[in-house]
Design a protein around this nucleic acid. Sequence first.
DNA 1: CGGTTGACTTTCC
DNA 2: AGGAAAGCCAACC
Length: 100
Amino acid sequence: MANSFFENVYHVVTMIRPGRVATYGQIATYLGNRRAARTVGWALRALPEGSSVPWHRVINSQGRISTSTTLQRVLLEEEGVKFDERGCIDLNRYLWEGPQ
DNA sequence: CGGTTGACTTTCC
DNA sequence: AGGAAAGCCAACC
């Protein structure tokens, strides 16, 4: 599947298991470009609402949501991801371990 | 083809 | 510790 970077991002995000999260940089690194984290966010931003891609499982390196909505936090909490009082996720515990 | 943009990351102060 | 600035990359216009 040597499609566009776009498609690759969607594919990787889809592989993230429920209750797990991944950072933009982590995905970029997985695709071969550690520096392309911004592009990953760019791709997810362009994602339509009804998409089957679990975009809410993608967060920034600080373990916080980067979107302008709180929907992402709600969706994650429904999957069992806990947020501390500062709105941060414990990356050491919920960070994606890789495909399967 | 070239400048702009952005749901990032890292480094410096 | 926390905010500001710089660096980087692919898609858009």
